[in-house]
């Protein structure tokens, strides 16, 4: 039997059904496409929550302020939860141009309460480690300098 639409085009119920379909299927399509293509444009996200497997081996970036006498201070922000997550921008620091990198470094120094003139350079290092499952002690397996910026 051929499909017949018994509702008139101006019927508010028909309009409401069209709206329901448009809104719902568009929203679901955006969610699915973002997940497949791995889009991260908040609040559009791929929903990768804890999707990577953890193990004994790990890696991480550390940003150090190096004083003229060689003293090193870890610049990882703590306390304020907004500032703390800026540590995730360390990757961007390695890719940033000179001016942008300097601005970022000065920003982190300011958060840490360190004057740029008291620092000879800021060094971004990548370390890898392995953790003992019983003692939970970490043993560093490598350390490389990713970037060095003079503030």
């Amino acid at each position: 039997m051929a499909a017949v639409d018994l509702e008139s085009p101006g019927d508010p119920t028909r309009r409401e059904r069209s709206r329901a379909r448009l809104v719902t299927y568009t929203a679901l399509s955006v969610l699915l496409v973002a997940a497949v293509v791995q889009v991260e444009l908040w609040p559009v996200t791929a929903f990768r929550l804890f999707s990577s497997s953890r193990g004994a081996d790990g890696a991480g970036l550390t940003l150090w302020a190096v004083a003229p006498d060689g003293t090193r201070t870890d610049l990882r922000p703590s306390g304020n939860s907004v500032l703390a997550t800026t540590g995730h921008l360390y990757d961007d620091l390695a890719r940033a141009d000179a001016d942008q990198a300097q601005e970022m470094v000065v920003g982190w120094l300011g958060v840490a309460g360190i004057r740029p003139e008291d620092v000879s350079q800021v060094v971004l290092e990548r370390a890898t480690w392995t953790t003992d499952p019983h003692t939970l002690e970490r043993r560093e397996t490598s350390r490389t300098v990713v970037a060095a910026v003079r503030p």
């Binding site: 908040w42 609040p43 907004v82 800026t86 601005e103 982190w108």
Partner: peptide, 17 residues
């Protein structure tokens, strides 16, 4: 207000806002 403590250089603009 904690947002206001973040330096401009440490803000990511890769989102809808």
């Amino acid at each position: 207000t904690l947002i206001a403590d973040r330096p401009s250089a440490l803000r990511s603009h890769v989102n809808v806002v």
